[in-house]
Amino acid sequence: MTRALPLLLLVLTACGSQGIEGVKTFTYPAGDHRSGSLIYAETPPAGGPHNATWQNCGVYDRPLYNEYAVHSLEHGAVWITYRPNLDAAQVATLRKLVEGRPYTLLSPYEGLDTPVAASAWGAQLKVDQADDSRLKAFLDKYEQGATAPERGASCSGAYGETR
């Protein structure tokens, strides 16, 4: 009996390490291309209908259209958004976080209920600080992650404009 307890704790610890505290998950069908302005259940969106053209991955100083960014999520991108009034040091921290990651979007976003949000297809994490370690964990798990219906599809060569 004393041997089973350490093994049980090891198994439970290993299972628990896969989750990221605070991540909410959603289920959306892929490939639902629509035109025009769309309404989403989450702010910012974490999946759903989207424009047939994807947003080019990269760092933006202006807000993006949801409809293009969601298509990038379908391709395996992670979209990190922040309140437009977030202080420059925190924005710099976010820029450094996404630096060198080809399947990320970074942009300001009006109306966030927290200072920073990270969204992937079917998953979202909202945090109060740009240096929250869960953001990197979210990127590591969801950038080109298993939840992306079209992971590996291009994240460049399409729409590069902002609002």
Rank of each mutant, 00 (worst) to 15 (best):
Thr43Phe: 05
Ser17Pro: 00
Asp32His: 13
Asn66Asp: 15
Glu99Leu: 04
Asp132Cys: 09
Thr27Gln: 15
Ala153Thr: 14
Gln124Lys: 11
Gly122Ser: 11
Pro45Tyr: 02
Ala123Tyr: 06
Trp79Leu: 02
Tyr60Glu: 05
Thr43Asp: 05
Asp113Asn: 15
Pro115Lys: 09
Gln55Ala: 00
Gln18Asn: 09
Asn66Val: 09
Pro44Gln: 12
Tyr60Pro: 05
Pro44Lys: 14
Leu8Pro: 10
Gly160Glu: 05
Met1His: 14
Ser107Arg: 01
Asp61Arg: 13
Val59Ser: 03
Lys136Ser: 10
Lys141Ser: 00
Gln144Lys: 06
Arg83Cys: 11
Pro6Val: 06
Thr147Tyr: 08
Leu5Phe: 10
Tyr82Lys: 00
Glu143His: 08
Ser156Leu: 04
Tyr68Asp: 03
Ala46Glu: 03
Leu105Arg: 00
Thr13Cys: 02
Ala130Glu: 07
Arg101Cys: 07
Val70Glu: 06
Lys96Met: 04
Arg163Ser: 06
Lys141Gln: 06
Thr114Met: 08
Lys136Val: 00
Arg3Tyr: 08
Ser119Pro: 01
Glu74Ser: 06
Ala89Gln: 04
Ala92Ser: 08
Tyr68Ser: 01
Ala137Asn: 01
Gly31Asp: 10
Arg95Ile: 12
Tyr40Cys: 01
His33Glu: 13
Asp128Ser: 11
Pro115Thr: 08
Glu21Trp: 11
Gly16Ala: 15
Ala130Pro: 09
Tyr40His: 09
Gly19Leu: 15
Ser35Glu: 08
Gly58Cys: 14
Gln144Pro: 01
Tyr68Met: 06
Ala41Gln: 13
Arg101Glu: 09
Lys24Thr: 12
Pro102Ile: 03
Leu125Trp: 00
Val98Tyr: 00
Ser35Asn: 11
Ser156Lys: 11
Ala148Met: 02
Asp131Gly: 03
Gln129Ala: 09
Asp131Phe: 02
Ser107Phe: 03
Gly111Ala: 07
Tyr159Lys: 04
Gln144Phe: 04
Cys57Leu: 14
Tyr82Met: 00
Leu8Lys: 13
Ala123Thr: 14
Phe138Lys: 04
Asn51Ile: 06
Ile39Thr: 13
Val78Gln: 01
Cys155Gln: 06
Glu161Arg: 08
Leu64Pro: 03
Leu112Gln: 12
Ala69Thr: 06
Val70Gly: 01
Ser154Ala: 15
Arg151Ala: 13
Glu67Phe: 05
Ala4Asp: 15
Arg151Thr: 07
Arg95Ser: 08
Gly76Gln: 01
Ala4Gly: 12
Ala52Ser: 15
Ile80Val: 04
Tyr159Val: 04
Ala153Lys: 13
Thr81Val: 09
Glu99Met: 07
Asn66Cys: 02
Tyr142Met: 02
Trp121Pro: 03
Ala4Met: 15
Thr53Gln: 10
Trp79Gln: 00
Pro102Ala: 14
Ser37Val: 15
Cys57Met: 11
Ile20Asp: 07
Ala14Asn: 11
Thr13Val: 07
